[in-house]
Design a binder for these strands. Structure first.
Lengths: 196, 196
DNA sequence: CTTGTTCTTGACCTGCAGGTCAAGAACAGG
DNA sequence: CCTGTTCTTGACCTGCAGGTCAAGAACAAG
């Protein structure tokens, strides 16, 4: 069964999921039609339904792929020896755009999806909650280290500060969709870090 | 023209807009059909189109009504003589729910709409930006007063702190749609205020 | 009570979202 | 090269979103 019999797929399902993630990220779930997806993935619509089952199932895979990418990125945040505040700044700014010079303006697929679907769709809400918990955990580790190194004030519980940072990141990702320029966003980042 | 001729409307357009606001707030723009709106407003679908022009125009009115309500609430924040931090706490918690005991879980219509439509719809984005600017301005006034009264640290620019508060409020309103309980939200509020 | 105007309603229309399927193509095994 | 299996595609289907409209009702003016 390692080589399944029958006609082999002509496309790479993982690449397709990654592409679908981009589409959902840019357009949102409701504003994306199966036809658009098929076009972007370079496959027929029937092929899409044969491979993934439907728009919703493909979205679940795309969202999970996004979460995996983010979680993968978290590990990177924990490495390194630079002062914690510098790394927090880098992390927050990276969320806004992988390219430091230009705003992404798409925000975060997890947050966008939670806002669009989270009230009715418990599955999506659970997925996104899981990411938030992990992000908060990473923030807590970083803050604790910063406190040991004297880089971050020690009179506030690390977990409480981590919750604040999670909330700050969430706000930034939403505001980034509206802000015309990066001024307010960088001001938020700088000021927040100054308060720690 | 004070009394327009012809058959008079059988419903109050302002009440209808207010009701439409509730529907869009609860369900989102895309997930709300004209038929649902007509049912909730207790009018026929044709009547809805005659009175408002279409789903999108009605949404614009509903959003503007929401913004008016919020701006109206801002004035209330500025009044009173209680310590600024206490009033900031009250304001942030009020955003999460007009009833202090139960989470609203609908978040903020402006933010939800910006996330759902903001990328394609510049009109919505502009409206929401306007609200954000005013909220930030009110925060700045409050912070400045708090700094004069010694309630808030004076070593950080009031406008910078106002941006942080705006971002914090945004994050809270998004997280409130996902959080199972109020624990994390109140922790964010308390910790943020402690940092000021 | 006639006329002109505006409101009300539900039947009706168009287009597309979301999905199904039959026909055939591309494999592996025998 | 025949068979069973899986993939591919576009035509096709159903339902509903979003909107239009004709017929009639409720007014004010004259």
């Amino acid at each position: 069964m390692l080589v399944p019999m029958g006609r082999p797929k002509e496309f790479d399902p993982e690449r397709a999921v990654a592409e679908a993630m981009e589409v959902f990220w840019t357009q949102g779930y409701g504003a994306t039609s199966p036809q658009q997806l098929a076009d972007r993935l370079r496959i027929g619509k029937g092929s899409l339904y044969n491979a993934f089952g439907g728009k919703r199932q493909l979205f679940d895979l795309a969202l999970r792929h996004y979460l995996d990418l983010r979680v993968e990125g978290l590990a990177h945040w924990l490495e390194g020896t630079a002062p914690v505040k510098d790394r927090l700044r880098e992390a927050l700014l990276f969320l806004l755009s992988s390219d430091p010079d230009t705003l992404d303006r798409r925000g975060c697929l997890a947050i966008n999806s939670a806002v669009e679907l989270g009230r009715l769709d418990e599955a999506v809400a659970t997925q996104v909650r899981g990411l938030f918990d992990r992000v908060e955990g990473v923030f807590a580790s970083l803050v604790a280290r910063g406190q040991r190194e004297g880089d971050i004030r020690g009179d506030v519980d690390a977990k409480a500060l981590a919750s604040v940072l999670l909330n700050t990141a969430t706000g930034l990702l939403v505001l980034s969709r509206l802000e015309p320029g990066p001024d307010r966003l960088t001001r938020v980042v700088d000021t927040t870090l100054a308060l720690l």
